[in-house]
């Protein structure tokens, strides 16, 4: 009797997904759907938050007041994105603190791109243009994801992202119009961030263990390889226009496919970085743990103050 009901519920659930009806927090959903969403949304939230660190590194050293104001606004947006997504995660029945602790213990990951260091000002250009560009590719697709709170957060995030990529491209284009040294700096940033940006879309479809189920649930709307291809196709002409070279000797336009062919991704590097052995993994988590621990007394004091003034 009980199992029959569960089956019926699961059937109704999938029918709703197939009809593109959004799932809302209190609706019945399979446990595995809930778990997948918690993993995906919290990973996304952590990426927004950890993603503030490599850029935060350059706020005090921005080359002009204009660039500084822009970078501050961008980093503040990323904090907002993290908060929208932590709220969306909470609607699935996990506490925010638990979610954050899972990041700190390494149980849940964040985008591996943020484990690379930001060595020069040009990296702010490469990150805005390529990293936010890749993130936008992914996020635009997620505006139609099946879980209501996630989709709504994505719509708001996408609206805010639109300046992030432009400001990055503007930095790159300004440097490419500058001195020889500035052009070299921009190309160097490009060389370091190109491949890790392609890795942001995750393992190839053949290797991706979650893709098939996620597509059926419409948590994901495009596969990793599809999104990666769109990103390459969009980025190559943008690079060419300002004179940046894509660091890939195998990159070539394929007339028959109507897409660029590109070289093989170094998946060994990807798994190393995901596994905790990237250049900055330790530093990033340490910074987050420190922020939580050193803010503890502030959160406690605020709560004590609120309780006192309630009575």
């Amino acid at each position: 009797m009980e199992t029959l009901t569960q089956e019926k519920l699961a059937e109704k659930f999938q029918a709703k997904i197939d009809a593109d009806i959004k799932i809302e927090p209190n609706d019945w959903m399979p446990d595995t759907y809930r778990k997948s969403l918690i993993r995906q949304i919290s990973q996304h939230a952590h990426s927004e938050i950890v993603g503030m660190l490599p850029e935060g590194n350059w706020i005090t050293r921005a080359p002009s007041l204009r660039r500084k104001a822009v970078l501050l606004a961008k980093v503040q947006d990323e904090a907002g994105h993290g908060l929208y997504l932590y709220s969306a995660t909470e609607t699935l029945g996990v506490s925010r603190e638990e979610t954050i602790d899972d990041l700190h213990s390494g149980k849940v990951k964040y985008s591996s791109i943020f484990n690379y260091p930001t060595l020069s000002w040009a990296d702010m250009g490469a990150i805005g243009w390529l990293v936010d560009g890749a993130a936008i590719m992914n996020q635009v697709a997620l505006c139609r994801t099946s879980y209501g709170p996630y989709a709504r957060a994505m719509v708001k995030i996408c609206k805010e992202e639109s300046f992030h990529q432009r400001q990055g491209y503007e930095i790159m284009s300004t440097l490419m119009n500058g001195t020889e040294a500035q052009r070299e700096m921009a190309q160097d940033a490009m060389n370091r961030f190109w491949w890790p940006s392609l890795m942001m879309f995750g393992p190839s479809d053949a290797e991706s263990k979650h893709t098939e189920q996620s597509m059926r649930w419409r948590i994901k709307r495009h596969t990793n390889d599809e999104l990666r291809q769109s990103f390459v196709d969009a980025s190559v002409p943008q690079a060419e226009l300002i004179g940046l070279k894509i660091p890939d000797p195998n990159l070539v336009w394929n007339e028959a496919r109507g897409h660029y062919d590109f070289g093989a991704i170094d998946w060994e590097e990807f798994w190393q970085v995901v596994g905790g052995n990237g250049p900055c993994n330790k530093e990033r988590i340490e910074a987050r743990v420190k922020a939580k621990e050193e803010g503890e007394w502030v959160r406690e004091a605020a709560m004590a103050y609120a309780k006192k003034h309630k009575s």
Binding site: G80, L83, Y84, S87, E90, T91, R96, P149, R152, A153, K156, R299, A302, M303, Y305, A306, H309, K310
Partner: peptide, 20 residues
Amino acid sequence: HVGSLRAPDAEMALQNARDV
């Protein structure tokens, strides 16, 4: 309705809502 947030009291919730 636009979303949710955490805050110790109503006043902080309003301020955070403005920023977020």
